[in-house]
Every structure is written in C-alpha cells, then in structure tokens.
Simulated scan of single mutants.
Amino acid sequence: MRRQGLILWCRQRGLARVAAVQLACLAWVIIGSGILVQVPPLLSGTGVEVANAAVVPLVGAVAIAWALARRDVALEAARRRPVWWWDATTALALSASYLAVTALLPASMAVVSFRNALGLTGLSLIAAAIGLTQLASTVPIAYTAASLFAGRMEMGRALWSWPVKYARDPIAASLAGLTFLLGAALYIYRVPTVQKQDDD
C-alpha cells in the first residue's frame, strides 16, 4: 500500500481513536492490576472472580469492531486494495500490545490480557466476516458476559469459557489463539471481490 493510501486507510478506520482507546486500556490494566471482578453465578455454581486484566481487553475488541464497521467494502473491493490484510495485522498488533507492558504487570495478568485480547478480537473479526459488521461488537460482549455469568474458571471444565480461565490454562490459550486465526482467515477470505461484467 502506498503512503497516501495508508494515510487514507488510517483515517477511514479511525485508527487514531482506536489507538487512544488501546492506550487507555493498557493504562487501566497497569493501574488496576490488583483489582478483582467478582461475578455471581447466573444459574448455578459458585460464580467467578477474575482479574481486571481479563475484562479490560473487551474494550479494545469493541474499538476494533467499531473500526471495521467504518470500512467501505464496495469502494475498497473496486480498487483492489489489500486493506483487509492491514485490518487483520493491526488487530493482531493491538492485541499484542499487552505484551509490551509485561514488565509492569504480574506475568499471569499479562498472559490473561493478551489471551483475551486475541480471542475477543478474533470474535470481532468473525462477526465482521459473516456480515454482522455493524453489530460486530455485540459478539465479544455477549461471549464475555456468558463466560462471566455461566463459565467456569477450573481447568478442564466449561472449556468454552476461556475468557475467565486462569493464565496457566493451556487449553484456554489455544482456544483464544485459534479464535483469532479463524477470525482473521474468514475476514480476509470473505471480503467481496469485484465481479467481472460483460462488455456491452
């Protein structure tokens, strides 16, 4: 992508605002690293008690979903710009930014933040890929809420609720990573292309 095209893409996606939101998330994770979010069970069980670092990445995932909703699919497809690769790469970079503050956080919280940012961003990409562009943010929000109110923190139980699992849970990390890979692949693959028209 040329410099002018990159600048236009940044403006169109509102990347400055997304970056500002991500910086705020990083600051809040650092400042509130000792805060625990206690959630009572919705139906049964004992509820969960997760670190602030597990919930804050949801805000970044919502900001990324907002940026994806701003895209002009028809215009971008017509010009054949590889902006969808830039979208996926930027989403990965923003998720990985939690690793940049590892030295300022307990290792477990840095791992949880990165894991949840990666997985929840993947859910935003999946939603955008299947046509829920304007509602992409509702998918990670709903999934996080379901995990908080109906999930289990114990390893090997309720595997689907990876957002509330402990940092040392390898299955949760794998599921979050696979969610992002699936989301990125679907997002890039399902981007519409220009259909050839017969000449009159």
Rank of each mutant, 00 (worst) to 15 (best):
M1D: 12
M1C: 08
R3M: 09
Q4Y: 00
G5K: 04
C10T: 15
G14E: 09
R17L: 14
R17C: 09
V18F: 04
A20N: 06
V21S: 04
V21M: 04
C25T: 01
L26S: 08
L26A: 05
I30Y: 04
I31R: 10
G34S: 05
L36Q: 08
V39T: 07
V39A: 02
V39Q: 00
P41W: 00
L42V: 01
S44M: 07
T46G: 08
G47Y: 00
A51Y: 05
A51M: 05
N52K: 00
A53W: 03
A54Q: 14
P57C: 04
L58A: 08
L58G: 05
V59C: 08
G60M: 08
L68N: 11
A69K: 05
A69Q: 10
R70L: 07
R71P: 04
R71Y: 05
R71G: 12
R71E: 14
V73F: 03
A74D: 15
L75K: 10
E76R: 13
A77F: 13
A78C: 08
A78R: 13
R81Y: 03
P82C: 12
W85P: 02
W85M: 07
W86E: 10
D87F: 04
T89V: 06
T89D: 02
T90Q: 11
A91W: 03
L92D: 09
A93E: 10
A93F: 13
S95M: 02
A96Q: 11
A96V: 12
Y98C: 06
L99A: 13
T102E: 09
T102F: 03
L104H: 11
A107N: 05
S108M: 02
S108C: 03
M109D: 12
V112C: 00
S113N: 07
S113L: 04
F114K: 00
R115Q: 11
R115M: 11
R115W: 08
N116I: 00
L118T: 14
G119I: 03
L123G: 06
L123V: 00
L123Y: 00
S124F: 02
S124V: 02
I126K: 09
A128V: 00
A128G: 15
A128K: 01
A129L: 07
I130V: 15
G131R: 07
G131P: 10
T133R: 15
Q134C: 07
L135F: 11
A136N: 09
V139W: 05
I141N: 06
T144L: 15
A146K: 08
S147E: 09
L148V: 01
A150T: 13
G151M: 14
R152K: 12
M155E: 12
M155I: 12
G156W: 06
G156F: 07
R157H: 09
L159N: 12
L159S: 13
P163S: 06
V164N: 01
R168H: 13
I171P: 04
A176C: 10
L178W: 13
L178R: 13
L181H: 10
A185F: 15
Y187L: 15
Y189P: 01
Y189K: 15
R190C: 14
V191D: 13
P192Q: 09
P192S: 10
T193M: 05
T193H: 14
Q195H: 07
Q195C: 06
K196M: 01
K196H: 01
D200Y: 08
